[in-house]
Amino acid sequence: MGGPESVSKGVGSGDVVGDRELRVSDAEREHVGQLLQRAVGLGMLSLGEFTERMDTALAAKTRGELNAVLIDLPGVRLVGQPAAPPSTFVNAAPSFVKRPISPGLAVPSQVTPSNVVRSRLSGVNRRGPWQVAPMLHLNNWLSGVTLDFTEAIMSTQVVELHLDDYLSSLTLIVPGEATVDLNALDLIGSSVNNKVRTGPPIGPLHLIVHGRVRFGSVTAKHPFRAQLRKLMGG
């Protein structure tokens, strides 16, 4: 019975189930979501493709359904496939390299942790001269996140933020001439408060915020000192 696709027998039924029909766990779905986020950061997927594939991954019940969202991405090992030698992963692109998915899965070295803000029951603050990627992915549950762009090191004028937040608050602090577009957010039981201009992007920074916020809040504002000067007519 040995072969590339192992089988198992249903208890008491004698049925044979292939690897593609095996059920997947929440941990596997979540990790596939992380791989899709990294694929966006590498320019392999558009935001629209990412959203469509994430919906498919979250609804997947079997390995076959979950693997479908990864099958055309180079350098990704699919759920339930045997591990290849370590050197094979380094030379993977553009061919596929496959291995069982797990929370410690290695990813291409071009992806940096600064592309992703992910927290659970936590508080996250990015302030001072932090390096801002052209696209940021936020996935926060029951957390408070503050991104302060006033002293940040920018690589592009336009920065895109993709949100997938649940019961969390996001505060965006931007320089005086910056603009923030929050109009594309999908809100479920949430609130948005934009205290800065939405555009056009004529200043040093323009934030475009996409994605979904469930039972949370998003606020865009200037630093407190700038707000105080405006109130005093300075």
Rank of each mutant, 00 (worst) to 15 (best):
184 A>P: 01
27 A>M: 10
133 A>C: 06
17 V>W: 12
131 Q>N: 15
218 V>G: 08
229 R>P: 04
182 L>F: 06
232 M>V: 08
50 F>I: 05
115 N>Y: 10
50 F>Y: 15
26 D>G: 13
145 V>H: 13
175 P>G: 00
14 G>F: 13
110 Q>S: 08
95 S>T: 11
224 F>W: 14
149 F>I: 12
175 P>C: 01
89 F>C: 02
201 P>C: 06
179 T>I: 11
229 R>F: 13
14 G>Q: 09
179 T>F: 05
102 S>D: 09
130 W>H: 13
20 R>Y: 11
14 G>R: 02
230 K>Q: 04
179 T>Y: 00
166 Y>M: 06
151 E>I: 03
13 S>Q: 02
176 G>R: 00
119 S>Q: 05
94 P>G: 11
42 L>A: 13
159 V>I: 13
220 A>M: 10
196 V>L: 00
64 G>Y: 04
40 V>W: 15
102 S>P: 01
214 R>D: 10
227 Q>K: 06
60 A>M: 03
111 V>I: 04
223 P>L: 05
229 R>E: 14
136 L>C: 12
64 G>I: 09
42 L>V: 03
200 P>C: 00
184 A>D: 08
112 T>P: 00
115 N>P: 02
54 M>C: 01
115 N>D: 03
94 P>V: 06
95 S>A: 15
16 V>Y: 13
216 G>W: 07
161 L>E: 03
231 L>Y: 13
222 H>S: 11
45 L>F: 10
213 V>S: 14
171 T>W: 06
68 A>H: 08
96 F>G: 00
210 H>G: 05
98 K>S: 12
1 M>T: 05
128 G>L: 14
119 S>T: 09
73 L>P: 07
159 V>A: 06
113 P>K: 07
173 I>F: 08
31 H>D: 14
44 M>Q: 10
150 T>F: 02
167 L>Y: 01
12 G>S: 06
209 V>D: 12
3 G>R: 06
198 T>D: 03
164 D>G: 05
46 S>R: 09
70 L>C: 03
81 Q>S: 09
98 K>E: 09
22 L>M: 00
213 V>E: 12
55 D>E: 15
134 P>I: 15
122 S>G: 15
121 L>Q: 12
220 A>N: 04
89 F>I: 04
96 F>A: 11
204 P>T: 08
184 A>H: 05
118 R>L: 03
200 P>N: 06
17 V>D: 03
209 V>F: 14
87 S>V: 07
107 V>D: 13
184 A>N: 04
60 A>G: 03
104 G>T: 15
97 V>Q: 02
188 I>T: 07
61 K>S: 08
164 D>H: 05
37 Q>F: 10
111 V>N: 05
65 E>R: 01
41 G>H: 15
218 V>E: 05
102 S>Q: 07
125 N>D: 11
53 R>Y: 04
